[in-house]
Nucleic acid binder design. Structure first.
Lengths: 209, 209
DNA sequence: TAGATTGTTAATCGATTAACAATC
DNA sequence: TAGATTGTTAATCGATTAACAATC
């Protein structure tokens, strides 16, 4: 598969996937780029360009078969596999993510939760016991973990990331408000919540002027 | 202030703010675009371009005064004001956000939490009692709420958004996995968690090939 | 066959980077 | 004054949109 797909395209794929699922649920059999354009908000031209990065999924004069396209995009996104995940930091956010059952339905299987707080270690969250973070390295050696969700505070995040890199975890989903320094071969996705709030704040301030 | 700042620039502002705070804490007095470039990861040229959208904050031959620039960016981001916020949906995620004290320190003051579940209504979270969502409209009429965090499930999100639009709430921070249909004058920031996971999944799948 | 709609190339637009005169 | 570094214009790069021949 082409390795040079731009990030802009990749970031749109989940949205295609989401809208196609909706169409499928509404029993829509086929859709043209023009029709899809109207509900998803991308231009028809962009939709055709995006999809053609991965193959000719459509048919001239017909459009796209909704079910086929949905499945194809699922494949492109790697949803045919399952992934083992762990959560580090079982505070409010970590617990919230642990309880998100929808992630499981996409194939992201939670296999471990870690924390350093003795008051939290030992608790059971969504059927998984919280383990002391000191035992994480050993756990990672014995389990082939794909993705780690970092839900620690700012201070602990880099320390945790270093262990994850060493243990050859493949990806990090980072919720701590810091940019992690990691080796090139580990993929990081950041959720900097405060950044989003500041963006909103920027626009609210603008309004008043 | 210029109204035509591109979204790309705006989305970088919180990162400038974060790094300048760090420099300030480390007692760094001045910094050149070149030095900042090395720690923040944008090119020096981009940094100068970005900042010059808002004014000439630097000085030839010297660079930028860290404290001044930090304050200026804070102003640009609207951090001189405070904002009233509410949370709708007090499940795991809603509760996690309610307990995030750091938002408060940026001026985002939580004034209400709403839920429809009778088991949750009445609970006190971070000093605020969860109110029945049926009473939200009235609450919004009596309180000048700036930002609403939607932490409901997919099904309830649009229903809630409609009430928020009616009540003239200025911005929505949407955590439900759905694209809300709202009027033009309300700003929406989406956190589609599953989209981020799918992006990671895309790259993990790639690795194996 | 005629109509519709894709796949794909070309044109445009916008964002990033490079270059350098201005100036502290 | 000489050196450093900005502010800003010009060049480049990449992403989006438009156009249309191919084809179902």
């Amino acid at each position: 598969m082409d390795n040079s797909i731009s990030m802009a395209v990749i970031k749109r794929l989940p949205k295609y996937h989401r809208y196609l699922k909706e169409l499928l649920d509404r029993d829509v059999k086929r859709i043209s780029s023009k029709e899809l354009s109207e509900i998803i908000g991308f231009t028809a031209s962009q939709i055709r360009q995006d999809l053609n990065n991965f193959g000719g999924f459509g048919q001239q004069g017909y459009g796209y078969n909704v079910e086929d396209l949905y499945k194809e995009i699922g494949k492109i996104l790697g949803l045919t596999k399952t992934y083992k995940t762990v959560i580090i930091g079982a505070g409010n956010l970590g617990q919230a993510l642990a309880n998100y059952t929808s992630f499981g339905s996409y194939g992201f299987e939670l296999v471990g939760i870690f924390d350093k707080n003795p008051k939290i270690v030992g608790l059971e969250i969504n059927g998984i016991e919280v383990t002391d973070v000191d035992l994480m390295k050993k756990f990672l050696e014995n389990n082939d973990v794909d993705i780690a969700y970092i839900c620690t505070n700012k201070t602990g995040a880099q320390f945790v990331a270093d262990i994850l890199v060493q243990a050859k975890v493949k990806a990090i989903w980072n919720f701590a408000p810091v940019d992690l320094k990691v080796s090139e071969d580990i993929r990081v996705e950041n959720v900097h919540l405060i950044d989003d709030l500041l963006t909103l704040s920027y626009f609210l301030k603008e309004q008043g002027e």
